[in-house]
Design a binder for these strands. Structure first.
Lengths: 138, 138
DNA sequence: GTAGTGTCTCTAGTAACTAGAGGTTCAAGA
DNA sequence: TCTTGAACCTCTAGTTACTAGAGACACTAC
């Protein structure tokens, strides 16, 4: 049996976050000591590792809920799981695309100002004031 | 003079968001009609466009505050502005890097499951449960 | 004058935590 | 067995950048 601090160390999920996951229903309520402290078993550790891994991959709490629900029904179709993963992938790709556009624009803007001049002549400030200076849609 | 709705249409910033920017100190308090409605001048419109553009580029409200402060002092060095832009650029690059790693992992995970099987054999669920299956650090 | 749309303030909700207060329990050493 | 200090408990509130809704008032066009 692990205390919440033990669990935290093993999974690298912070203690308040573990409690938060419990509150959100991702983790089921663990046993308690007589003094009301949480005690987790191996299943609890596994579950939290799953959550941590999914969060690291950017899945939302809601998506993880659904995945955990599925996990609890081994005989059910896993189409939903596949869909969640695919949708997460396309989210990530959309974000990358957007960030790449921003990156280009920021490179252009940064290059225009070395920080040596005064605010009045600053290309960073001028660029932000005038969208026309932008070369890449965003 | 523009009403808040006019301003909203011209800048494509929603009305409550404009009020929010005012509350955060990004926009100075505009004049009011006798009936207490906001009325903006050209300077207000320009300022909001600046904010919108900066937000679109991912700058935080705090960063925009500093940029606006600088804008108000044309004779001051623009080093801070340059630094803010450079730091924003490195933030964006760091995000892209991380997202690319996630993308690779998600592609691998998604490919492993076509959604035709059952939850028990699902590669998506298995991958999340076992970090060892991951090929790319994240 | 009146109808209908726009605007006002205020509160609360969103996602996924994080921080802090004030109090209790546990485990290890003396 | 006692004590001490770290770990734990619950609860509230704060973070970011908004968004939604309620209930009331203002403006504009006919």
């Amino acid at each position: 049996m692990y205390s919440i601090g033990e669990l935290s160390k093993r999974t690298k999920v912070k203690v308040p976050t573990i409690r938060y996951y419990e509150e959100m229903g991702l983790l089921s309520e663990p046993e308690r000591t007589e003094g009301n402290q949480r005690r987790y078993d191996a299943a609890g550790l596994e579950r939290l590792s799953f959550i941590k891994h999914a969060r690291d991959l950017g899945f939302s709490i809601e998506a993880i809920s659904k995945l955990i629900e599925l996990q609890g029904h081994p005989d059910r179709s896993c189409q939903a799981a596949s869909e969640i993963a695919v949708s997460q992938l396309s989210d990530v790709r959309a974000k990358i695309k957007r960030l790449r556009a921003l990156e280009k624009e920021l490179v252009r803007i940064s290059k225009g100002c070395d920080g040596e001049g005064v605010s009045q002549d600053c290309y960073v400030l001028a660029s932000l004031a005038d969208h026309e200076l932008c070369r890449h849609g965003h």
